[in-house]
Design a protein around this nucleic acid. Structure first.
Lengths: 204, 204
DNA sequence: CGGAATCCTCTTCGATACTG
DNA sequence: CAGTATCGAAGAGGATTCCG
């Protein structure tokens, strides 16, 4: 029997389901890519495996996540269509956290988290049409290989390699952010694309 | 010493502060109007008064809420400017809860909660310019007297009376929603304004 | 090996009674 | 009316074990 605020209010209802401890961080991971149990366990340091199991069951029961089809040799968890609709909530929390809080250097950090932050800060308004309709960016560092595709519809993100990137950044997103702030010079294969790309983000 | 995810991630940081149990519901109340301790206590049934005290202290320490100036005879709590910036998060949760979950009739309900839901569902895009630039609506029922002002900039809401309302609705917002759904006929002082007003909300 | 189940400790929560 | 104090109940955290 699940704990509930027992209020007939949209906020209370969604909080009951989504704002339990750890739950939103599970969504963070699954919004970036499907995850195996172990990946979640590693990203969510401090969460007991039993608690993780419970949350996954609750979310599966609620129809927000599902196990990948067993045809694939190693099954993992992924968001359902309904689970995907949680993204705006996560992004609004990221925007808020980004604007209001400064991180503690002692805290754990994983580079792929920045990928979602990038999506949260991407600004569709701001945004002139790209010379090429879309702009494909490849990030590559020791810890993370990732990509994003910017267009007027928003920013798509993912892990791994992308073909025919317009812009190759030999470092992580965090570095890019500090570049934007400090306006340091960086060498890239396509300076024009870099400028276009940077123009897509809210400046703060 | 506060509990924390200890992750250097915008989502984890904002969750640490905002997604503790009851915290978002406190924001719901204060986004509608400043509250005295007792009002919060009544709206947050099931929350112990000690816990409420703790949360209020934490939020005050974080600079998100403050006590009203003691010049006013009875002091209460209100959002700071920084606290106001939490609104987009609350509204995104309301939109999600409204779309994905059906309420349980046994649960407690307070009419003023619908006021914030109305704000969450208000659609600035949808929105032709009003004949009068803004549209002032007064709600009046036994349980709730409230108003809202719709404009191209968004929807302002508040409790109590407003002067020179364009539209007087002798019932609550819930009734209006069911009217929108079922397209039942209702008698009002200004049918044209009612149509304009209804056109401002996402249809779902 | 992935992950579910068990057990134990500690923290937080929930409800009520109490005090300035 | 605002806030404290108290205490049993529930949830979280961590380690370990069990199972396919």
């Amino acid at each position: 029997m699940k704990r509930s605020y027992k209020q007939n209010c949209a906020l209370a209802l969604s909080s009951d389901l989504l704002c339990e401890r750890w739950t939103l961080l599970i969504f963070r991971e699954l919004l970036i890519r499907p995850c195996r149990f172990k990946e979640l366990n590693q990203a969510l340091e401090g969460m007991g495996t039993n608690l993780l199991t419970n949350r996954l069951k609750e979310l599966e029961a609620a129809g927000l996540i599902e196990k990948q089809t067993p045809t694939e040799k190693r099954s993992g968890y992924q968001l359902t269509l309904s689970g995907l609709s949680v993204e705006p909530i996560v992004l609004s929390l990221i925007r808020w956290g980004n604007g209001h809080l400064s991180g503690d250097e002692a805290f754990k950090h994983q580079d792929h988290w920045d990928l979602l932050a990038m999506k949260a800060l991407y600004n569709t308004d701001n945004n002139k049409v790209f010379t090429e309709q879309v702009l494909k960016v490849q990030f590559k560092s020791e810890q993370l290989t990732a990509w994003c595709i910017a267009s007027e519809n928003g920013l798509e993100i993912g892990l791994g390699e992308i073909t025919s990137a317009d812009l190759l950044l030999p470092f992580t997103i965090k570095d890019l952010q500090s570049f934007i702030k400090n306006k340091t010079h960086i060498e890239v294969n396509n300076p024009g694309a870099l400028q276009e790309f940077i123009g897509c983000f809210s400046s703060h």
